[in-house]
Design a protein around this nucleic acid. Structure first.
Length: 193
DNA sequence: TCGAAGATTGTCT
DNA sequence: GACAATCTTCGAG
């Protein structure tokens, strides 16, 4: 089992963190049990000048975690039914984060299948930001919590080679949608879309 | 107090 | 591929 990534891991350029989070393990422990998966797709959202970043509207109740210390979780509710989890990056005052878009399931598959009855294959368990939160049991309770202790932690995994990293524009957004800030593991079948 | 939009998903054609 | 579901958040009135 890999060691938990410390706060200074997140206190760097957001693109670097998004890149290096590939291959790391997201783990969630609730009263139902433990679930985890390897991070294979991320997106960087960088500061108030990034129109697609939630912080573009400034500091509000919702975006408050983005202004907190790096290494915390930012969990938000979208489209009236889905949760998405981000890892807050950079130093305090620079609101940026990395959205975790897809996982390759590792531990707790039976529990994930129970939480995602709509999934018709294990691939559909965690191949999207809303799906992986449902599979791991992540919701508002985890918003603003540090990622260095349970319920939610991120551990070091097997590093992904540069030649295996693919960079594309972010998807699912309408603002600044042409910036190449999406990072994914080439050839991994668990990526979203 | 009200209205509009949204970092998605699942279903139907 | 198109579109509905569903509700929180925020800014305007």
């Amino acid at each position: 089992m890999g060691r938990i990534l410390r706060r200074d891991f997140y206190d760097r350029e957001t693109e670097i963190v998004a890149r290096e989070l590939l291959g790391a393990v997201l783990e969630c422990r609730t009263h139902d049990g433990l679930t985890s998966g390897v991070i294979i797709e991320t997106e960087a959202y960088i500061g108030e000048h990034d129109a697609a970043c939630h912080a573009a509207v400034g500091r509000t109740l919702r975006t408050e975690p983005l202004y907190g210390p790096p290494g915390n979780a930012y969990v938000y509710f979208i489209y009236g039914m889905h949760w998405c989890i981000n890892a807050v990056t950079r130093a305090e005052g620079l609101p940026s984060a990395v959205l975790i878009r897809a996982l390759e399931p590792l531990d707790g598959l039976p529990l994930m299948r129970r939480r995602r009855p709509k999934a018709r294959s294990d691939r559909e368990l965690t191949n999207g930001p809303g799906k992986l939160c449902a599979a791991l049991g992540i919701d508002k309770r985890m918003n603003g919590l540090p990622l260095q202790r349970h319920p939610v932690v991120i551990r070091a995994g097997s590093p992904v080679k540069d030649s295996d990293v693919e960079i594309t524009p972010r998807i699912g957004i309408t603002q600044a949608s042409d910036w190449p800030l999406r990072f994914l593991v080439r050839g991994n079948s668990f990526v979203s879309r």
